[in-house]
Design a binder for these strands. Structure first.
Length: 466
RNA sequence: GGCCCCUUCAUCUAGCGGUCCAGGAUGCAAGGUUUUCAUCCUUGUCACAGGGGUUCGAGUCCCCUAGGGGUCACCA
């Protein structure tokens, strides 16, 4: 049985780095028919927020990850932790330390000045005298004084940290609340977590947690410390490097499976495979295959992946997603043709929305450069003539009808396709570029096409007059 | 700074002592398709950080150097 967990502290949104480790944990549990649990690390009462927990769960929902059992809040379990503190105190494995914060700061400062590593000096470790009055003590755990703490990391291999590097760290604050490294070890043990997959930044917490495991006689889980995601600058990914909030990706028009595919491939691979369905991830994922080195965030590749998944999405799904971008196509009569065209050419859902709006809405302004380039010479006359031709033409419905009309037009006028194409493009969508003109005309219809041509001609006339 | 970890194309990576004058993908460049742009297709571009070992043979193992990252709270 494999039991994994994701244990965020509710201090803000879900970070894409967090989502990656959550995904790894999720995949590993599901692959093995085990359980994936979610625990909220809110022992610091002054920092936790219910809002943040909600955001994390919202992000989980969006990407389609579910967790097993009840959501565990550490703040609900203080009595439990307290009982273990008492136990350690009774067994002499932990002790009260009466040093004040100020004394501690002073000690640290002196050590720094002597260029020593700042650490607690153990002065109350074997203290038996009368405790100083008026001071609420913290509880410290007795860490080994000598030797090495060695553990096997599933990603990095054997890790050795000297006992002298780990001091008697605090397991309960002077207000009685327990601290992170203590409760994590207890919860992981009690929740039956077999595989702890977490960020590299926790590597140094592991020896501390091992001390707790051993003091309490718990069985150690397997540890996997996944390397950080670095920003384009090569430093730890931060807000400055662009979007780090998972839900921002939704707002930017990314598909959750694209994000997941991107994240799973960042630091992990299966041969040359780039595209992974969830089933394929489940089939191939193994945390021991995660790379030991950090990887840099690469937005271009995510965009490419997103384009891939958009192309392969159903029109119905896209129409639903587009509603988040104020485009309501579900019962639009041109839905199929519109989405068939734009899902092939756009990289985000947001981009689809923008480009479809260009087509179905009459342009309200024109790209200046496009006007300059397209409307020179006799472009206005050509457009005018084309509008007249549209009026007198027979049945016009399909893109091929419009295409035939344009071909006939350029043949009659003995001009190149571009002579009518470019100005028409500006008239229809306000800029150069965009999809096939015959598609656009077929979608908006003859009447609207003529109106847009006339609107542009009026605009050009007016701006040349002034 | 101490400690820990890491080091293959610009980026994500394959490679688990010979099959690698290093493969795939993104990006970029060129060409093709397209009335335009995008897509798509083809081709190209680009890397084993440096130095020592070990070995018949090293991208693959060991050491050193350099560089990068992480971490040193009554935060998590």
């Amino acid at each position: 049985m494999v039991v994994t967990r994701f244990a965020p502290s509710p201090t803000g949104y879900l970070h894409i780095g967090g989502l990656r480790t959550a995904l790894y944990s999720y995949l590993w549990a599901r692959k093995n028919g085990g359980e994936f649990k979610l625990r909220i690390e809110d022992t610091d009462l002054s920092r936790n927020s219910a809002e943040a927990t909600k955001k994390i769960i919202e992000a989980f929902d969006w990407v389609g990850m579910d967790y097993d059992g009840e959501l565990v809040y550490q703040s609900d379990r203080f009595d439990l932790y307290k009982s273990y503190i008492v136990k350690l105190l009774d067994e002499g494995k932990a002790y009260r330390c009466y040093m004040t914060k100020e004394e501690l700061d002073k000690l640290r400062e002196e050590q720094m000045q002597r260029k020593e590593r700042p650490r607690y000096d153990g002065r109350y470790r074997d203290f038996t005298g009368e405790p100083p009055a008026g001071i609420e003590p913290v509880i410290r755990i007795k860490a080994p004084l000598e030797g090495d703490i060695v553990f096997e990391d599933g990603i990095k291999g054997s890790i050795t940290i000297r006992a002298s590097e780990v001091d008697d760290f605090i397991i309960a604050r002077s207000d009685g609340t327990p601290t992170y490294n203590f409760v994590v070890a207890i919860d992981d043990a009690l929740m039956g977590i077999t595989d702890v997959i977490r960020g590299d930044d926790h590597l140094y917490n592991t020896p501390k947690q091992i001390i707790v495991y051993e003091a309490l006689g718990f069985k150690l889980p397997r540890f996997y410390h996944v390397p950080m995601i670095l920003g384009p600058s090569g430093k730890k990914l931060s807000k400055r490097d662009g979007a780090t909030d998972v839900m921002e990706y939704k707002a930017m028009g990314y598909l959750p499976e694209a994000l997941l595919n991107f994240l799973v491939r960042l630091g992990w691979s299966h041969g040359d495979q780039e595209i992974f369905t969830l089933d394929e991830m489940l089939e191939h994922f193994d945390p021991t295959d995660i790379n030991a080195s950090a990887s840099q965030y690469n937005p271009d590749k995510l965009l490419w992946l997103n384009a891939h998944y958009i192309k392969n999405s159903s029109n119905e799904r896209l129409a639903k997603l587009l509603e988040d971008f104020d485009l309501y196509l579900l019962s639009h009569d041109k839905r199929e043709i519109l989405l068939d065209i734009f899902k092939e050419r756009c990289k985000t859902v947001k981009e689809i929305a923008e480009q479809i709006k260009e087509v179905i809405e009459t342009p309200s302004n024109y790209d200046e450069k496009a006007i300059k380039k397209a409307m020179k010479g006799s472009a206005d006359e050509i457009l005018e003539t084309f509008a007249r031709k549209l009026e007198t033409a027979g049945e016009l419905h399909l893109p091929t009808d419009y295409h035939a009309l344009m071909e006939e037009f350029v043949r009659e006028k003995e001009i190149g396709f571009g002579k009518i194409g470019m100005p028409l493009r500006v008239a229809l969508i306000g800029r150069l570029g965009g999809p096939e003109l015959s598609d656009v005309m077929s979608i908006i219809g003859r009447k609207e096409t003529i109106e847009r041509i006339e609107k542009l001609l009026t605009f050009v006339k007016e701006s040349s007059a002034s």
